[in-house]
């Protein structure tokens, strides 16, 4: 008999979040910075908490992380995007424990950026292609309320449904955090699927969060256009 140790997967959600940000730099449209086409690294930094959640028979496990940053590369036309680094920290969960989220197997390659404006909403979207065998987000959960510590779950993109992140240009008044002057990304209810780990890990994880997106280094704004 083996200890159940893993019930939750919330961490996975966060990993997915990270993916989205990085993997695909902006493509399929034109990405500029300072009026010139931009090819290079970009940095996504969370605006407010990033949350990740997975289900269990005793209710959802919701992880709230106070810090998240994603380092990615993109070509000016949005192709060849790579997610090179992921850092998520300060995660606690609603079962009075902590959660550690780590993205392994980086860089994650695959995806594109579309200029796909929506009236009153986004300017485009980052799409992480799926399935993507490179994606492996590890979540280790301590769940004191349920007597479970060190539950390890791995999540990836195993279905044909891509992961999508809405992108807002700096001048878009409908961006998630209007008081932040930079371009932003919004991850809302995107899912990652269980790939390995404890038998009790949630089958899917959902991630939510807002990010500012700038060049790295330099911190200059990026613009997504047609």
């Amino acid at each position: 008999m083996r200890k159940l140790g893993k019930i939750a997967i919330p961490i996975v959600g966060s990993a997915a979040l990270l993916f989205g940000m990085t993997g695909t730099a902006f493509a399929s449209a034109t990405i500029t910075s300072g009026g010139a086409p931009y090819t290079g690294d970009v940095l996504g930094t969370n605006l407010g908490n990033v949350t990740l959640a997975g289900n269990s028979f005793l209710g959802p496990i919701i992880n709230t992380c106070t810090s998240a940053s994603l380092g990615a590369y993109t070509k000016y036309d949005g192709t060849d995007g790579k997610l090179n680094s992921v850092s998520i920290s300060g995660c606690t969960n609603n079962r009075h424990g902590t959660t550690t989220v780590t993205a392994t197997g980086l860089p994650y390659i695959g995806g594109h950026v579309d200029h796909d404006p929506v009236s009153g909403g986004r300017d485009g979207k980052i799409v992480i292609d799926a399935p993507n065998s490179a994606v492996d987000v590890k979540a280790i959960l301590d769940l004191p309320d349920w007597g479970l510590m060190g539950v390890e779950c791995h999540y990836g993109l195993t279905t044909s449904t891509p992961l999508s992140i809405d992108v807002y240009n700096p001048s878009n008044s409908n961006k998630p955090e209007p008081s932040n002057p930079h371009g932003q990304g919004k991850l809302a209810g995107q899912s990652l699927q269980f790939i390995s780990g404890d038998s009790v890990c949630p089958a899917s994880a959902s991630a939510n969060g807002n990010f500012q997106i700038v060049t790295d280094p330099g911190g200059a704004d990026l613009e997504l256009g047609a």
Partner: peptide, 27 residues
């Protein structure tokens, strides 16, 4: 619940047992 209870007296706190996997197919 699994965690320790907080009952009014005369009962005293008790705890459940954390889940343990006893089969994997199905879980």
């Amino acid at each position: 619940g699994i965690g320790t209870t907080n009952p009014p007296p005369p009962n005293t706190p008790i705890s459940g047992e954390p889940p343990v996997v006893v089969s994997t197919n199905p879980v």
